[in-house]
Structure formats: structure tokens, C-alpha cells
């Protein structure tokens, strides 16, 4: 199509906007995944080994968050924050929502994996005198990791995809940046496709990385 050369020109013109958007997407995704994984791991441990006063809040948190669409979560965090006395930027509100979302899923993943470890492993660890923390670190978590990894990679790609929802609350991540370029150039199809392609590549790369990590973690 004869528009193609001019599209490349526009792409070049838009490179800073799109690059900034890309960086924002990465930033909120990484923050959400890191924070969510931390929160979720604690939650998973609490759900597996904690006594019910510890389990209950995590159970409630996990079930409520997982039953809510992530879009609703993002909007809720954004709109509710001022009423709760907080004044986050849209980026902060959105990332917080994604973090909570990630955490609830990771908690379930970790719980499932830990509960799948045969009871004998705990007992063997105790028998050789390891403390709970040590048996977690040396015996239980390494085994659980095998089951956690693929699902966790999946959850991470979900977070990257969910980061696009932040465009609705005005965060200039990749999607919104693309939309800004579209508003300027009217090249709707091309830039939406380009955005789609970039997201596809990011997630594809994550998937590949995940598979590589899986291989390194699996027992020979």
C-alpha cells in the first residue's frame, strides 16, 4: 500500500513517544510483578503453613481479588484512592492495582505448589534437624519452584497484557502512547497493529525466557 513509506516516516517521528510508552509499560509491569510475587509468596506460605488467623486475611484477599476483573480493580484503585486520603499518580494507582492482582494469583500458585509436595519431604527435612526456614529454603521451595515457574511466567504475561488497562486511567504506557500517535496521524490500523506486535514480542520473549528457566530448574 502506498501509505507504507509514510508510515515508516511517522513511526520514526513517533519514536520518542512510543519508546517512552514502552518504558512505562515495562516499568509498571516489572514493579507489579516483583511486588506481586513478593506479596504472593508470603501469601502462599501463609495459606499453606499458617494458622487460621494468618490464613484468613490472605484467603479473603486472594478470593476477592481473583473474583474481580482486573479492569475493575484498576478503576477502583484509581477512583477510590483520594477518598481514602491517598493521592497517587495514575501510574502509582494502576501499578498498585496490578500488584494486588499479581499477588493474589501468585499466592494461589505458590499454595498449590507447596501443597503438592509430598508430606514425606517435610518429615525428612525435620528428621535431619533442619529448621522450618531451612527446610523451606533447601528442600521445599526448590521443589515447588518446578511447578510454580510455568504458571508464574503465565501470570507475568497476564500482567504485561493488563498494563494496557492503565491507558484508560491516563497512564502514558505503550497503548495510550500509540493512541496519541494515532490521534495525530490518523494511521489507526498501522499503529494499533504495531502496538499489538510489540506486545506480542514482549510476551513471546517472556514465554521463551520462562521455558529456558524451566529447563534449568527441572531435574535431569
Amino acid at each position: 500500500m502506498y501509505e507504507a513509506p509514510s508510515w515508516f516516516l511517522e513511526l520514526w517521528n513517533a519514536r520518542q513517544t512510543l519508546a517512552a510508552g514502552f518504558a512505562t509499560t515495562l516499568a509498571c509491569s516489572v514493579l507489579a510483578v516483583l511486588g506481586g510475587t513478593l506479596l504472593g509468596t508470603l501469601g502462599g506460605l501463609a495459606l499453606t503453613y499458617g494458622r487460621w488467623p494468618l490464613r484468613l486475611p490472605f484467603r479473603v484477599y486472594s478470593d476477592l481479588i481473583r473474583g474481580t476483573p482486573v479492569f475493575v480493580l484498576v478503576l477502583a484503585c484509581y477512583y477510590m484512592a483520594p477518598a481514602l486520603g491517598l493521592r497517587p499518580t495514575p501510574f502509582q494507582a494502576g501499578t498498585a492495582a496490578l500488584l494486588l492482582f499479581c499477588g493474589s494469583h501468585v499466592a494461589e500458585i505458590v499454595r498449590g505448589a507447596l501443597q503438592a509436595i509430598p508430606r514425606g519431604q517435610h518429615e525428612a527435612a525435620k528428621a535431619i534437624g533442619l529448621t522450618f526456614a531451612q527446610s523451606l529454603k533447601e528442600v521445599l521451595l526448590p521443589q515447588a519452584l518446578r511447578q510454580i515457574l510455568p504458571t508464574w511466567v503465565n501470570a507475568s504475561t497476564e500482567i504485561v497484557k493488563a498494563s494496557t488497562l492503565l491507558s484508560v486511567i491516563g497512564v502514558a504506557e505503550l497503548l495510550l502512547s500509540s493512541q496519541q500517535v494515532i490521534a495525530r496521524t490518523f494511521m489507526t490500523l498501522q499503529f494499533y497493529l504495531f502496538a499489538g506486535l510489540l506486545f506480542f514480542l514482549i510476551n513471546f520473549a517472556i514465554e521463551r525466557l520462562g521455558r529456558y528457566l524451566e529447563k534449568r530448574v527441572t531435574l535431569p
Binding site: 504475561t157 504485561v160 497484557k161 493488563a162 498494563s163 494496557t164 488497562l165 491507558s167 497503548l175 493512541q179 489507526t188 490500523l189 494499533y192 497493529l193 502496538a195 499489538g196 506486545f199 506480542f200 510476551n203 513471546f204 514465554e207
Partner: peptide
């Protein structure tokens, strides 16, 4: 691997 929001916008605005 594509965010569903991008798919929605693609189909609605780009088609």
C-alpha cells in the same frame, strides 16, 4: 500474546 484491550480496539477502530 496480545492484550485483549488491543484486540478490542483493533477490531473496533482499525477495521
Amino acid at each position: 500474546n496480545t492484550p485483549i484491550l488491543v484486540l478490542i480496539l483493533l477490531l473496533y477502530f482499525a477495521l
